[in-house]
Amino acid sequence: MAVPELFRALGDPIRLEMVQRLSDGAPCTIGAVSAGLGITRQGARKHLQVLADAKIVFLEAHGRDVLVQLDPSGLDRAKQYISDLQLRWDRRLEALQRYLEDG
């Protein structure tokens, strides 16, 4: 479920700031993406993992560092979610119909 995951992943000021820093599409180091946010490197990695799990960013080992980059598949998943949602609303409306006609 792309959209709820996006909500949950983005629903945090630190992660939002990280995404903002990545929004020009260029790869960033963990240090650059978390500088000045008042979090440890360990904390930064946790936040980035949440973003990676929601497929908002890629994490890529680069020598001793990790590079972070926005993942363009996020929007594709959002689109898929919307087309799935039509089927779900159809099911819900059919449940409404059954309740009113059979109940």
């Binding site: 919307i82 949602l85 039509q86 609303w89 159809d90 409306l93 059919e94 409404l96 119909q97 009113l100």
Partner: peptide, 8 residues
């Protein structure tokens, strides 16, 4: 998205 259904 828009869906519709007719209910009796």
């Amino acid at each position: 998205i828009e869906r519709q259904i007719t209910v009796r």
